[in-house]
Design a protein around this nucleic acid. Structure first.
Lengths: 345, 345
DNA sequence: CTGTTAGCGCATTCAA
DNA sequence: TTGAATGCGCTAACAG
C-alpha cells in the first residue's frame, strides 16, 4: 500500500544508527557489532524493507542483469535453450531480461537497445536470420560481453557457440557401424554450404576410420527438404548394391527419406536405418520416430550463460571471435530406433 | 571501450547547455528550441550516448519492467504464453524479466523476491503447483499489480485469468451436433474435480439447448488418463445403442479413446468423432490427429499483459480477486477432423 | 526557452 | 565500530 518504499534511512532511523551501518549489515560485512546487526535485521523484517538494487546498480555503475534474446521461443529447442540459461543465470544471482525477436532483425535491434538502456551486464543472443555484425558492434564496443548461440554472425568479433557438425556426423556413422551397417549413404544437401561440408567430412572420416572405403556414389545430393529426401531415395533404389542405412543432412530430409522408403514398401528403422540431424526442429513434432543427432539445448544454454558470466567477472569482452563447438549426441527419439543389420527385413 | 558511459552532463557540456535542457530533449519536450534540439541530438549520436533508464527509474521511483514467471517454459503451451506476453509488453515500451520456476515454489519465491528488489512495475505469474496466497501477498500489498494465469491460487486477492471450461464444453458439443451427431458421450474423469463438473455442465446444457435428452449412461467415468480413455471405450462397446462421438475430459483421455477405438477396428475421426480438451499439452506432439477444445495461449498471454499494464497505469491493484475466463475454441489439429455423421463408416 | 537546485536509494571514502 | 559527506545519472520544480 505504501506509495514510497521504505529505504535504508528509514530503518537506520528506526534502529538509531546511520544508513552506512545499515548498508554494511546488508552486505554482510564482518566489521559491524553483532547486536547492531541483529537489531537492524529485525527492523528490516518487520518494516518490510526491500533492497533497491536499482539504486545500488546506479551507484556502482554495474548490474546483475543479463539480457537474453531468442529468435523463436515458440520453437521448443529455443525454449529449452532459454531454460538452460535461466538455470545458470539464476544460480549466479543474476536476473534476466528475456525477449523474443520472432526472427525480426528490427525487433531484435529495438530489444537490444532497450536492454542496453536498462543496463545489462552481458548479452546472450540467438540471432535472428539476417543479423549483421553492426547490430552487435556498439554493444561489444562499449565493453558489454556478448555471446552468440546457435547461429553465427559473420564478422562479429564475439564468442559464439555452435554445434560441432563434424563430430556429430562421426558419432552418427559410428552408431550405424556399431549396429552392423557397412553400406551407409549420405543424403540431402549440396556442396555449397558450410554445414554440408562439415557433416560430409565427418561422415567420410568415420567410414575411413572403420576401414570402410568411401564410396562417392553413396553421397546422394538433393534439396535439403522433405521432398528432396524422398527424391534421394528414388535415386538410391536403382543401385545394384543398395545402402542399408543413411545419414541425412537434416531432419526434414530424413522425414522425406522415410516417405520415400514407405512408398517403396520399406519400413524406416526396420528395413533401412535413418539418422537425421535435428535442425528443422519445427518438424520434430510431426514424425517423432527417428534417430537423430542433436545438441542438448539446455546444456548449450548453460554453457552460453557460463561464458557471459565468466566474461563479466573477468571484466573483459573477448578481443577476438571465439567459436566454441557444442558436442552433438546421437539420440533415440521415441519410436523405432535403427535396428541391428541382421534384424533388417 | 569507455569504462564510464557518457551521461547527459557530458553531452550538455559539449553542446554548451545545461543538463536539464538535454533531459528535456530526451523526453521530446516541445518547449525547447529547435536549433538546440538538433545540436543536442547530433551530439547524442556521435558521442554514443545511451540513456540510463536505471537512473531515471530511481529518480521517478517507478520502472518500465514487468516480471513474468512461468512454471514450465519447456512446455510449449507456456512458451507460447510467454511469447504473447512479450508482444504486449514490448509494444508498450516495457521490458520483461522472465524466469522459469520449474514447478518449484522455492525457486519461484526466490525469483519473485529478486524481481521485487529490481523494481518491477507489475508481475504476471503462472504459479507453480503448491503456490500459496502468502507467496504473493507481500507483493500485492506493496501496491504492485499481480496477475495470475492458467492456474488459480486459492485465497489470493489478485486478478486471475483462467479458461472457461463451461463454454468450451458447450462449443465442443455444438460442434458435434452441427456435424449431425446426436448420441454423444462424455468420457473420462470423476465427479470430484471442479474441472470435471464445469465441463460436464457445459456438455449437458448444450445437449438440452439442442433438445437432445441428457442420457446419464453416456457419461462414462474413468481415470483421466490415456488408459482410462481406452477403458471407457470398452465399456461403451457393449451398449445396445452406441454413441457416435464423444467429448473427452482431456486430451490424454482422448488419445486413450482413439486407442480403444482402434483395437475395436474403428478408425477415430472417421468411424467415431473424438473431441478432447487440450490440457495435457505434453501429449499433443505425440498424436496430433485430433479435434480439440483449447485456449489460444498467445492470446491469453496478451490479455494477461494488457491486464497488468492497465493496472499499472491506473496506479492501483485490484482490491478484490477478479477471475476472468478466457474463451476456449474448437480447433482442428492437423489430421482427421470429426466427420459429418453421414460419412461415418 | 534555459539554467539552478535538490534529491531518488544506495555504496564508498574518510574521520571520529 | 560507526557517522558524515559525496556522487552515480537522471527528473522535477522553480526561477530567470
Amino acid at each position: 500500500m505504501n506509495k514510497t518504499r521504505t529505504s535504508i534511512v528509514d530503518i537506520a532511523h528506526a534502529a538509531g544508527v546511520s544508513k552506512s551501518t545499515v548498508s554494511l549489515v546488508l552486505q554482510g560485512s564482518p566489521l559491524v557489532n553483532e547486536k547492531t546487526r541483529e537489531k537492524v535485521n529485525a527492523l528490516i523484517g518487520d518494516l518490510g524493507y526491500v533492497y533497491n538494487r536499482g539504486a545500488a546498480n546506479l551507484r556502482q555503475s554495474k548490474s546483475k542483469i543479463i539480457g537474453i534474446v531468442v529468435n523463436d521461443l515458440t520453437n521448443s529447442f529455443f525454449a529449452e535453450l532459454a531454460v538452460g540459461m535461466d538455470m545458470m543465470v539464476q544460480s549466479a544471482g543474476y536476473v534476466q531480461f528475456l525477449a523474443h525477436s520472432g526472427e525480426s532483425v528490427d525487433r531484435q535491434r529495438e530489444v537490444i537497445s532497450s536492454m542496453r538502456e536498462n543496463g545489462i551486464a552481458g548479452l546472450i543472443l540467438s540471432p535472428a536470420r539476417g543479423t549483421e555484425a553492426s547490430d552487435i558492434k556498439p554493444l561489444a564496443d562499449s565493453g558489454i560481453p556478448v555471446v552468440l548461440v546457435v547461429r553465427n554472425v559473420p564478422g562479429a568479433k564475439v564468442s559464439t557457440l555452435l554445434s560441432d557438425n563434424y563430430t556429430g556426423a562421426k558419432a552418427a556413422i559410428r552408431h550405424l557401424i556399431s549396429l552392423g551397417h557397412r553400406r551407409i549413404a549420405f543424403m540431402g544437401g549440396f556442396v555449397d554450404t558450410a554445414v554440408f561440408g562439415e557433416r560430409l567430412r565427418g561422415y567420410r572420416d568415420a567410414l575411413v576410420e572403420a576401414n570402410i572405403p568411401f564410396n562417392e556414389k553413396f553421397v546422394i545430393h538433393s534439396a535439403p527438404s522433405r521432398a528432396g529426401g524422398a527424391a534421394a531415395v528414388e535415386r538410391m533404389m536403382v543401385f545394384a548394391e543398395r545402402p542399408t542405412s543413411a545419414l541425412c543432412l537434416n531432419d526434414a530430409v530424413a522425414f522425406g527419406v522415410c516417405d520415400g522408403l514407405r512408398s517403396n514398401n520399406i519400413e524406416p528403422g526396420k528395413g533401412f536405418g535413418v539418422v537425421g540431424f535435428d535442425d528443422v526442429i519445427e518438424a520434430k513434432t510431426a514424425v517423432p520416430a527417428l534417430t537423430t543427432v542433436s545438441v542438448d539445448p539446455q546444456g548449450m544454454g548453460q554453457r552460453a550463460a557460463q561464458l557471459v558470466l565468466k566474461q563479466i567477472n573477468a571484466g573483459q569482452t573477448d578481443p577476438e571471435s571465439i567459436v566454441t563447438s557444442v558436442r552433438l549426441v546421437v539420440r533415440q527419439s521415441c519410436g523405432a530406433p535403427v535396428k541391428q543389420l541382421e534384424e533388417l527385413a
